[in-house]
Design a protein around this nucleic acid. Sequence first.
DNA 1: GATCCTCGAGTTCG
DNA 2: CTCGAGGATC
Length: 691
Amino acid sequence: MTDSSPTPDPSARAQRLRTQIRQHNYRYYILDDPAITDAEYDALMVALRELESEHPELVTPDSPTQRVGAPPDDGFAKVTHETPMLSLDNAFDADDVRAWGERIHRRLAPDHDLEAAPLAYVAEPKVDGLAVALVYQNGRLTRAATRGNGRVGEDVTSNVRALRSIPLVLPADPAALPPEITLPERLEVRGEIYFPLSDFEAMNARLEEEGKSTYVHPRNAAAGGLRQLDPAITAERPLRLFAYAVPEPAALGVTTQSGLLDALRALGLQTNPHSRRFTDLEALIAFAEGWLGRRDELDYLADGVVIKVDSLRWQNELGAVSHHPRWAVALKAPAEETTTTVERIEVRVGRTGRLVPHATLAPAQIRGVTISQATLHNEDYVVERDIREGDTVLIKRAGDVIPQVVRVLPDLRPEGTTPWTMPAICPACGEPAERAEEESDTYCVNASCPAQLQRHLEHFVARGAMDIDGLGIKLVTLFIGEGLIQGVADLFRLKPEDLEGREGFGEKRIANLMAAIDAARDRPLGRLLVGLGIRHVGGTVAGLLARRFHSIDLLAEADEEALAEVDGVGPEIASSVVAWFELPRNRSLVEELRELGVRLADPEPETRAPDDDGPQPLADKRIVLTGTLPTLTRSEARALIEQAGGKVVGSVSKKTDYLLAGENAGSKLAKAEELEVEVVDEAWLRGVVGG
DNA sequence: GATCCTCGAGTTCG
DNA sequence: CTCGAGGATC
């Protein structure tokens, strides 16, 4: 065996074994050049384990034997990502990529001579796996979290620690680390965890042999593996990671995406071996399209090719919109399509009264998932494609998720079909339906339409609105069916006696439900406004209105002009709000809710006038943010500014009052100086807002 | 008037 | 996730 000369000192011997094992992991996973057989590797592990069990005091938390720790006891803790994990903008063909290239050139051109220093890009196949964020503190893996919704993910540290392909310690091989790369105290690495296809097939073959059920999709198997409550099971799945991003790359001493990938590799993390740098976008497109056609040569599922601007400085200047960076785009592989037949087209009624045509399909498989329904959106969608009952249609899963009818195959149309038409009446209540001239949607305008009422109640109790725990679609349906409730106000009139003696309603459940309804009386105004279902008023707009008006009475009195003064509210939303409060039935609903003890106002700080948010030192000031601030994130700075009455705008112009600049400020700083805009820093902001 | 971005609403399957 | 449409900005 490799460790053939045991030293008398167990501590030194343990050290040596650990180093050997780490090096073999590194060779196996990163260099793809194993120096020993699996059996030899296992023997090293056995030796280390024996040594550690004889000398428990020698066990260190980062020892390879400690990968599988205690299973988490209940579920997974939530982790908030300090820098949100954004998704990628999609391109569906080469022209979309060209348009993206032109957009970023247009954005950078005013401030830079792009002729002299052409943009470079980095492209690599896009792995269809699970995005994760790994945190290394002083080189030790201390936390691993899933992407989740981008802002909050799940803590899967103990599971990720169980994966041999992910180093517990960085650098994995100090000798291979070039001197110019510095390991910061805290390093967050982002990447994609995936199930290699060869291993996936082997696992399925084994499961089948054992008579167990197999996995349909490698991503599900990888996700299932990561979310095992028992990390020992995770350890059996040979999941791998491609690292591709670091939220704060400056700390690593790199200036480009390609340099970042080199650094990650030098630290011992695997990166996509097919990553390539281009200065010619056309050459890159050829490369990307090449991979789209040869996806099956890869040992992982790829759903496209990721393209990024190479320069981190330019990435920084391009910035991001709310859910994707401007400096990257994913050229998506065409979604897998298949054919099926339309069994029926029916029309459903949404809570707004919108009539939505819907196709029931003969069940069809796409990538192992059975599709049996698809939305047809609106009248135009069906009529333009001339989709009829009985038709054979091409379907796909848009974004690999939402079933979509792409087009009809007219040659396969049976005899005797008739074109589909939007019904003139609401299928639920039979009242006439209306479609405004310039709109694509048809509405049932009957305010007492039972379908709308049902949807409305479901919405009222849902998360995001009044959030009544334990009250969902099922109970709403039951309560309406039994005549217990006819509108949202009736929810607050429910008494325990109404439910007693019903099947499934024990004492405990009734008490819980009553408590949940009671708790809903005290929701913030914004949530109540969401629940009321005013057209164009969702979570965001409701929050804006609540912040400005504080109470439903003041909101009800506001005219269109006053409403449109709120940033984010224009004429459409304003008129929709006014129209809602003009209806007598809505006014009386508000009165009923008031009598039933539902809170209709947000508490105001004592010293405040109704339309004052406290001191407004930055009232009407327009401020641009640039660079990295010492302690505040961009969104925190934005929140502070807005709280003080200021407005954060995207680009420097004559109308800008201040430029709030941090480190690595780029063109905005130059522009501000040119336009003689006052440049300020974080300390100034804290001073002004009294922070 | 064009362009970019954000928001609301409805959406499927496991 | 996708669609359509509203709003901000230049």
